[in-house]
């Protein structure tokens, strides 16, 4: 069985691939743990890559939480585990000492859009579907909220998170949720490759020092706020209303 996330390395550029294409790379605990294992491997490297690209296998980037795991049938602790695992993964990606570049190849929804948001730079195409529809499902997008506020500011984040729904890649670029949206999916690889190559021309020490300072200035080092957010999100998720909405969605 293929790992649910794997790592490809090429000199100064590494790529972490979310690998559940049949499920649109929806976040299961298994996939998140596999992504953590990829981060473990990166942490263990003596010479770190200069750029870490994060992308999804198949036509989607990441469709958000796997509904099968957040509907409480048997084990009520699983949603909290999943959200905490996601919170810790976003924190690790943010603090990883390489520039992170999200290649948003298709749908990036909820926590999936959060994975893109936490990256230093993100590129998608105009027709991709992105957004944070959690409130529509009776959920609270708490884990991704700190990252979105840091990226686009509190005013715009308030609008995006409270409005819910999805938007095009083009609109996401207008909001600043992604750095750039190319016109078509076919142009994505060239744009990502160009950005990764440009980043890799930078001095690794200079890039690391700059990223570290930016993380210090915007509060990215704070893990506690993410764990509190995961607890809040799990609490809202376990309400009867949220569970009913999720079950009807699954049907």
């Amino acid at each position: 069985m293929e790992p649910q996330a794997h790592l490809e390395t090429n000199d100064t550029i590494a790529t972490l691939v979310l690998n559940r294409p049949d499920a649109h790379n929806a976040m299961s605990i298994g996939m998140l743990n596999a992504a953590h294992e990829c981060m473990d491997k990166l942490d263990a490297m003596d010479t770190k890559p200069t750029v870490l690209v994060i992308t999804g296998a198949g036509r989607s980037f990441c469709a958000g939480m796997d509904l099968k795991e957040v509907i409480i049938d048997e084990d009520p602790t699983i949603p909290r585990q999943l959200l905490e695992t996601l919170a810790r993964l976003t924190h690790r990606i943010r603090l990883f000492p390489a520039v992170t570049l999200a290649r948003v190849n298709g749908a990036a929804i909820g926590g999936g859009c959060g994975l893109s948001t936490v990256c230093d730079i993100s590129i998608t195409h105009e027709d991709a579907k992105l957004g944070f529809p959690e409130v529509d499902l009776g959920l609270c997008p708490a884990v991704v909220a700190p990252w979105l506020v840091r990226k686009i500011g509190a005013g715009k984040a308030r609008q995006v998170l409270l409005t819910g729904g999805l938007m095009s890649g083009a609109r996401a670029a207008e909001f600043g949720i992604v750095t750039h949206a190319v016109e078509s999916r076919e142009q994505l690889d060239e744009a990502v490759s160009g950005a990764a190559s440009a980043l890799a021309t930078g001095g690794p020490d200079a890039l690391r020092a700059t990223k570290s300072l930016l993380n210090t200035l915007d509060g990215s080092e704070d893990l506690d706020i993410l764990l509190e957010a995961a607890a809040l999100s799990a609490s809202v998720l376990s309400t009867e209303d949220a569970q009913n909405r999720l079950k009807s969605r699954r049907k």
């Binding site: 021309t201 890039l207 700059t210 300072l213 930016l214």
Partner: peptide, 8 residues
């Protein structure tokens, strides 16, 4: 960063 300087 291309000349090894951090714009921090």
């Amino acid at each position: 960063t291309k000349i090894g300087v951090s714009p921090a």
